[in-house]
């Protein structure tokens, strides 16, 4: 299987879906001539022309609304958020229009839209450019939220998202774009709502998604050297959440650490902890423990940024804590 980047995997998915269905178009800031702020849309303007690859003014609320309207009458827009930080401007269209249209219209208007773009911290981008906001969207009924961690998952899930008839929030990882993995040429789909066991293990369950999977893997490697076996589960879809494999894993290992790049308060991990307490309470030998971003706006200084971001070392610490190892 070819080894390609996460960026190119997404590019393949876009290209293949645009070839497959003329109703699919890509819209956003700098997606065309500039070839994408993160070059995910490289070459698409050349292949599909400016009818289907559309540069917009900096009008997040505006062009998101344009996308939702187009979706109401049957088009399948893929809207690029340059980063999810800017989606705040489009929140009204996402939450009040896209997520509610089908319900409000009594099932008459589906919104088959994909809103995609990178999230999370990169390197010293400071407070307004470093946020992981997937829990915001996961809160909202009517939205689906996807956050792939590997090139394989990225391609398969983006194709699934484009074919899905509901609004999908597709969270990419800004620092994942250059990461490489095996991706088959041609068509395949990773279904939305299906988790994946990234590593099997016996002593502790680590739940992580997007960028945090690699942090978990790094921690698991360190722990393996100490004889501790970690099972890493990547939910891949955060809403709807594939609960069963997580519960089954915790029933096996009796403990769970959730690694989340975003803030702790009201994060996805809080929901996971609740689910585990609900369904695997008598299997727990330790409280579900969370490793999250620090509860502060992201600082700019490199050293502070490190402190504020989940690290493999902190995951190792948390695993030892739930294993009662000092």
């Amino acid at each position: 299987m070819p080894l390609i980047t996460y960026r190119d995997a997404l590019n393949q998915a876009l290209r293949e879906e645009m070839q497959r269905d003329p109703k699919v178009f890509l819209m956003g800031e700098e997606v065309g001539v500039y070839q994408g702020a993160y070059k995910v849309s490289r070459g698409l303007l050349q292949e599909f022309g400016d009818r289907r690859v559309i540069d917009t003014p900096i009008t997040e609320e505006g062009f998101t609304g344009v996308g939702v309207g187009a979706a109401m009458v049957g088009l399948r827009p893929v809207i690029e958020m340059m980063t999810w930080n800017f989606s705040m401007l489009a929140m009204d269209q996402i939450i009040n229009s896209a997520a509610k249209m089908l319900y409000m219209s009594g099932g008459q208007f589906r919104i088959p839209i994909v809103l995609r773009g990178p999230g999370g911290a990169a390197h010293q981008l400071a407070a307004q450019h470093s946020q992981s906001l997937e829990s915001w969207f996961a809160h909202v009924p009517g939205l689906k939220v996807v956050a792939p961690s590997t090139p394989y998952d990225a391609k398969g899930l983006l194709k699934a998202a484009i074919r899905d008839d509901d609004p999908v929030i597709f969270c990419e990882g800004e620092t994942l774009y250059g990461s490489k993995g095996e991706v088959p040429d041609g068509d395949y789909v990773v279904p939305i709502g299906v988790a994946d066991v990234k590593r099997e293990g016996t002593d502790v369950t680590i739940v992580a998604w997007s960028k945090m999977v690699s942090v978990a893997v790094k921690a698991a490697d360190t722990l393996a050297a100490e004889g501790i076996s970690c099972e890493i589960i990547d939910p891949r879809t955060l809403r709807p959440l594939d609960e069963a494999p997580i519960i089954a894993s915790v029933q096996k290992t009796n403990r769970c650490v959730v690694v989340e790049e975003g803030w702790e308060y009201s994060g996805i991990g809080a929901q996971l902890a609740y689910l585990i307490h609900r369904d695997a309470f008598s299997d727990l030998d330790a409280p579900v423990t969370r490793v999250t971003g620090a509860d502060v706006p992201m600082p700019y200084a490199k050293n502070l940024e490190h402190l504020a971001t989940p690290s493999a070392a902190r995951v190792v610490e948390a695993v030892k804590q739930v294993l009662y190892i000092d």
Partner: peptide, 24 residues
């Protein structure tokens, strides 16, 4: 006691009160 310990104790008939826990 952890929930798991409670369950295991009940299943195995271990008297939890006779144990000195090693957790926090």
């Amino acid at each position: 006691a952890s929930p798991l310990a409670l369950r295991m104790a009940a299943e195995a008939g271990v008297d939890l009160n006779a144990l000195q826990g090693s957790g926090p």
